[in-house]
């Protein structure tokens, strides 16, 4: 029995029908073809599926599709403004802060959420905030630097 849901994704009105047990991640990926968010674990432990719901950083694998009625969702696809990359995206590129890049969408969404809350985080604050986003390739060093650089640039 499909559930009808109206929501906003990256600023656009979106309607979809999903099953009761379908997660938001499944809806994004399988129904809306927004495959930027990845399924690394489906248990809330890797952060690859990170999105924001009403501005709050969330694991879309732990949220049901049916729960987002009337909410505003932000995904990695909405982070760049057209062809203009967000500073966090640019700094990830500049710092070579990705290898395989499968964690990168989650990192981008999580880091952007951090910098919106806290424009000048310490290294430790960045590390604890990002502790929910696993990256197996980089050892995090360059990711942390990219976030520091982006923070500096956004503060201007």
């Amino acid at each position: 029995m499909g559930i009808h849901v109206s929501t906003k994704i990256n600023g656009d009105d979106v309607e979809f029908v999903c099953d009761a047990e379908e997660t938001l991640l499944d809806v994004l990926r399988d129904r809306l073809n927004l495959t930027g968010a990845k399924e690394g674990c489906a248990t809330g432990d890797c952060g690859a599926c990170s999105v924001t719901i009403d501005g709050r950083l969330t694991c879309s694998c732990l949220t049901l599709g049916a729960e987002v009625e009337g909410r505003e969702i932000g995904t990695v696809e909405g982070v760049a403004k057209g062809n203009e990359l967000h500073p966090i995206q640019q700094k990830i590129l500049d710092n070579a802060a990705l290898q395989c890049g499968v964690c990168t969408p989650g990192i981008v969404v999580a880091a952007k959420a951090l910098l919106e809350k806290k424009p000048d985080p310490s290294e430790e604050e960045i590390r604890y905030w990002m502790a929910g986003n696993l990256c197996r390739c980089t050892g995090y060093d360059k990711i942390i630097r990219a976030i520091q650089d982006a923070a500096a640039e956004m503060r201007g």
Binding site: T35, G36, A37, E39, V79, Q89, D94, L98, G101
Partner: peptide
């Protein structure tokens, strides 16, 4: 900068489970 970089920071890069 790497040639596949922009696709990877914007979520456009297609990984194993992204093809339908």
């Amino acid at each position: 900068l790497r040639p596949d970089g922009v696709d990877k920071v914007t979520g456009r890069a297609r990984f194993g489970a992204d093809m339908n």
